[in-house]
C-alpha cells in the first residue's frame, strides 16, 4: 500500500508520484470522478492499474493518498 502524492501538472493532468520508488506518472483515467466522489480504479499512462476506495467529497489536490495495486 504505497502512499502516493497526487498533484496537478502545468497542463492540468493529474500526476501520480510514489516517493519510495521515485515514480512519477500521469493518470490516464479514474473510474469515479464526479463532484461527489473520486477514486476507484486508476489507470496510469504506463498501463499500470491502482485502486483506492472512492473518497467523498473528492480530495483537493495536491494530497497524499494510500493506493493498492490493482491486478
Amino acid at each position: 500500500m504505497p502512499s502516493v502524492m497526487i498533484r496537478k501538472s502545468d497542463t492540468g493532468a493529474l500526476l501520480f508520484y510514489v516517493a519510495k520508488k521515485d515514480m512519477e506518472e500521469t493518470i490516464a483515467s479514474v473510474e469515479t470522478d464526479t463532484p461527489e466522489a473520486w477514486g476507484g480504479r486508476v489507470e496510469l499512462t504506463d498501463g499500470s492499474q491502482w485502486y483506492l476506495d472512492p473518497i467523498s467529497p473528492p480530495p483537493r489536490f495536491p494530497t497524499t493518498l494510500r493506493f493498492t495495486r490493482a491486478a
Binding site: M5, R7, P62
Partner: peptide
C-alpha cells in the same frame, strides 16, 4: 523535489 512536494501537500 522531495521537500518541494512536501511543502506543496502540507502548506499548499
Amino acid at each position: 523535489n522531495y521537500i518541494s512536494r512536501h511543502m506543496e501537500v502540507k502548506y499548499g
